[in-house]
C-alpha cells in the first residue's frame, strides 16, 4: 500500500514537471530574448539561443532540464547568473521557517479550539469561535496583514512590520520579525482545521462506543480526547496537511506585504524579470512540497488506524 502511494506520488511529480515545462514554453519570448532585451538583433538572439541550447527540440530540452534537477542542478538564473540551487537554498529555508513558525501556533490552536467547540456544541462559545474564524478566513490576507501591522506594529509597536531577515539574523530577532507574518498566516489557516476537528469529532459522538463511554461514567473532556479524537485523526490530518501545504506554497501575498525573502517573493520577482529557469524551479519545488505533504497525510492516516496498524 505504501509503495503504491509512493509511486503514485512520483508519477504525479513527473506529470507536474511536464506541465510546468510546457506551460513555461508556451509563454511568449524566451530566456535568450529576455536576457538581451528589446534592442537585440535577431542574429545575436539566435547565437545566444544556440549557446544556451534553446535551439534544440522541446523534448531534448525537457529531459536535459529534468536530468539536471535529478542531480541537484537547477540551472543558472538569467537575471543574476547565479546558480539557482544556491539562490533557492536560503529562500526555501526562509519559507519553511515561516511555515513551521505559523504551524506551531496554528495547529495546536486549531485543535484546541475545535475540541472545545465539539465539547460545548451549539453554545455561545461554539458559535462565536465559528463566526470569528470564518470572518478571519473570509478576509483577504493582505487586508489582515495590514490591519495587524497597523495595530500591533504601528500603534502598539510590539513587533516590527518588516520581516526583512538575512541568513545572519539572530534567532530571537528572526522570531520577532517573523511574528506578524506568522500570525497573519495563522489567522488564515486556523478556521479550516478547527472546523474539521469539530466536525470530525461531532460526527463520532453518535457512535455506540461514545455512548458506551458516557454510560461508563467517563468525563466529557476525556470522552472527546480519549474516545473520539483517536478515531477522528484521518480527516483532521488531511486538513492539517492541506493547510501546511498552503503555508508553504500560498504565502506569496504575505511575503510580499512583509517584504519577507521567501520562495513566494522570489517567484513573483522572477516572473517579472522573465527569469524562466527560476520560475520553473520554484514551481517544481511547490509541487514537490504538495505531493510530499499529501503522501505524509496518507501515511499518517494509515498509522492512526488501529485496524491497519494491528492486523488480526
Amino acid at each position: 500500500m505504501l509503495l503504491q502511494r509512493l509511486s503514485l506520488g512520483l508519477i504525479t511529480l513527473f506529470v507536474v514537471s511536464l506541465i510546468i515545462f510546457l506551460g513555461v514554453s508556451l509563454l511568449p519570448g524566451d530566456a535568450a530574448q529576455a536576457m538581451l532585451g528589446q534592442s537585440a538583433t535577431p542574429e545575436t538572439v539566435a547565437a545566444l539561443r544556440k549557446q544556451m541550447g534553446l535551439d534544440q527540440p522541446g523534448y531534448i530540452r525537457y529531459f536535459t532540464w529534468l536530468g539536471g534537477i535529478l542531480q541537484g542542478d537547477f540551472g543558472v538564473s538569467i537575471s543574476n547568473k547565479r546558480e539557482i540551487a544556491e539562490l533557492l537554498g536560503t529562500r526555501f529555508s526562509n519559507t519553511i521557517f515561516l511555515a513551521v513558525f505559523a504551524a506551531i501556533i496554528a495547529v495546536p490552536l486549531a485543535l484546541a479550539l475545535g475540541i472545545m467547540a465539539a465539547l460545548h456544541r451549539n453554545s455561545i462559545y461554539d458559535r462565536s469561535v465559528n463566526v470569528i474564524t470564518l470572518s478571519s478566513i473570509s478576509t483577504p490576507e493582505f487586508f489582515v496583514a495590514y490591519i495587524l501591522i497597523l495595530f500591533i506594529s504601528v500603534k502598539a509597536g510590539w513587533f516590527p512590520s518588516l520581516a526583512n531577515v538575512s541568513p545572519d539574523t539572530p534567532f530571537v530577532e528572526r522570531l520577532s520579525k517573523c511574528f506578524l507574518p506568522a500570525l497573519t498566516l495563522t489567522l488564515v489557516v486556523v478556521a479550516h482545521m478547527m472546523r474539521m476537528t469539530r466536525a470530525a469529532i461531532i460526527n463520532l459522538l453518535a457512535s455506540p462506543y461514545i455512548e458506551m463511554a458516557a454510560l461508563k461514567g467517563i468525563r466529557k473532556l476525556r470522552i472527546i480526547t480519549r474516545h473520539a479524537l483517536p478515531n477522528a485523526w484521518a480527516p483532521i490530518i488531511n486538513v492539517i496537511v492541506l493547510n501546511l501545504a498552503y503555508l508553504i506554497v500560498g504565502v506569496v501575498v504575505v511575503e510580499v506585504v512583509f517584504v519577507y525573502p521567501g520562495l513566494g517573493q522570489l517567484l513573483v520577482d522572477s516572473v517579472q524579470r522573465r527569469d524562466l529557469p527560476v520560475v520553473q524551479a520554484c514551481c517544481l519545488i511547490f509541487a514537490a512540497t504538495y505531493v510530499l505533504l499529501n503522501l505524509t497525510a496518507d501515511i499518517l492516516s494509515i498509522l492512526t488506524n488501529p485496524r491497519l496498524l494491528h492486523p488480526k
Binding site: M212, A214, R219, H227
Partner: peptide, 24 residues
C-alpha cells in the same frame, strides 16, 4: 449521575463490536 454510571450501574450493549472503541 456520572459517578453512578459504570461504578454502580453498568451497561452491556447489543453490539459489542460497535460499542468497544476500536482505538484502544
Amino acid at each position: 449521575k456520572r459517578k453512578l454510571r459504570g461504578a454502580r450501574i453498568a451497561y452491556v450493549a447489543q453490539s459489542a463490536a460497535a460499542s468497544f472503541n476500536p482505538a484502544h
